[in-house]
Amino acid sequence: MANAKNNLKARHNWIKNIVAVVTSVFFFAPFYIILSLSFKVRGDRSSHWIFPSSPHIQSYVVALTKGNIGTAIINTLIVTVFSVVLIILFGSIASYPLARHRSKLNKFILSAFVGVMMVPPLSVLVPIYRLMVSLGGINTFWGIIILSTTYGLPMSVFMFSNFICTIPKELDEAALLDGCSQFAIFPRIILPNMMPVVSSVVILTGVSIWNDYSFQLYILQKPKLRTITLAMSSFFSEGMTNLPAAAAAAVMAVLPVVVLYLFLQKYFIKGTVDSAVK
C-alpha cells in the first residue's frame, strides 16, 4: 500500500519535472536571446536563436570600459543600500502605531500612504525637480536617497502593517502589564518576529530602487554619479549601433539582483506568507 503510494508519487514527480523543464525553457528564452546577443560581434545578422559558434567577450569589455558599468554598480549599491535601510527603519516604526491603534488620524495616514503607493511618480516629476534644486539635492547621493526612500516607504508600510496585524495583540498587553513602556513593545515584541517580512521588503523595494530610471536620471546628472540603469540605457539610445554591448550591459545589470534573490530566497516566501496572504 505504502509502496504503491510512493510509486504514484514518483510518477507524479516525473511529470512535474517535465512540466518544470518546459516552463523553465519558456521563461528563460528571453534571457537566452540577450545572452547569445551579448556574445555576438557587431553586425552579426544571424537569427536571435542561434548562439554564436565562437563567443566574443569584446562586448563586455566595451560595456565595462566605455559604459563604466563598474562605477555604476557601486553607485547603485550606495543608493539602494541606504534607501532600503531607511525604508525599513522608517517604515517599520511607522507601521506599528498604524496597525495597532486604529484612531481616525492613523487610519487617514495609512490610507494616504497606500494611495501614494499608486501615484505614478512621473506625474509630479517637475515639481519634485524644482524642489530638489532649491534644496541643493541635485547631483548628490542624499537627494536621490531621500526620494527613493519616500517613494519606497508606502510599499513597506503596507506590508509591515499587514504583518503586525497578524501578531496577537495580547502579547502587547501582557508586556504593558509587565511595566514595559509602549515604545519598548515594538523593539521587544514585534521586531524579533520580523525577519522574513523584512527580507520581502528588502527584495521588493531594493529591486525597484535598483531598477529605477526617472528619479536617478533627473537627480544624478554627473557621469561620475551614473547608476546602472542610466549607464545601461545609454547603450540602448537611438543611435544605438552596438547591440551586443547593450546586451552585455543589460546582463551585467541583472546579475546583482539575481544574486540578492538567491541569498534571500529562503526568507522571501515566508515573508510573503506573513505580509501578503493572511
Partner: peptide
C-alpha cells in the same frame, strides 16, 4: 546611513 548621507552632502 545618516552619517554617510551627510558626508556625501
Amino acid at each position: 546611513s545618516l552619517f554617510m548621507v551627510f558626508s556625501v552632502f
